[in-house]
Design a protein around this nucleic acid. Structure first.
Lengths: 95, 95
DNA sequence: TAAAAATATCGAAATATTTAGATATTTAAA
DNA sequence: TTTAAATATCTAAATATTTCGATATTTTTA
């Protein structure tokens, strides 16, 4: 595998992670055994539904989450490949 | 060692890395053998001096760079411990 | 000590992000 | 087949970030 990210992707991912709600979403998805859906995540926050939708969209757009629409639900998991590639990029700053 | 970051620190670091100029600064500092100083970095960009100063301040505030004032120059190196801890945090999202 | 060099700070404009409410869409259930 | 549930989209306000120019500070050099 060993995906390597463009600098633009690194920027987008960093931006996506630069928000407390989105970091918490990542943690919730990461901690769960199976797929998670919007409404599960939303329940943990005191934010409008449209706001949650917006945050989740940013994580998906940054390829940090992989989403799969099942019926009227949106399920997602952490994109391990991209997370690992991002961590690799950060580590490459340390020689 | 094994520094571990608070969620607030992770957010701050992510935010600091969510900008093309700041990512480029990190790369320049990372790629250089020894310490780098503001004026060296600034020369690479087409930005006002005050803007550069602001960007560098954000990287220092996020503990991504360690700065050392030498006379009228500000020299810095990558904070390896924090970068590694941040990469570890990202990797911890991938179970 | 006056001038120059390197950096920092302040104020303000331009731009981007966050958030909520209203509404739309899509699918499942009654 | 109407209703409810889950999510998405749009608009607009509130807030935050980026950027610059002007000026201040600190240190070195002439």
């Amino acid at each position: 595998m060993n995906t390597s990210l463009s600098i633009k992707q690194v920027e987008k991912i960093s931006k996506a992670l630069g928000d407390p709600y989105r970091l918490k979403i990542m943690k919730i998805v990461s901690n769960s055994e199976s797929c998670v859906q919007c409404c599960d995540v939303s329940a943990e926050f005191n934010l409008a539904q449209s706001t949650m939708s917006h945050h989740i969209k940013q994580l998906i757009d940054a390829d940090l989450l992989i989403a799969d629409k099942e019926g009227r639900n949106l399920k997602f998991v952490v994109n391990k490949e991209v997370c690992t590639a991002y961590a690799d990029y950060i580590n490459s700053l340390v020689l």
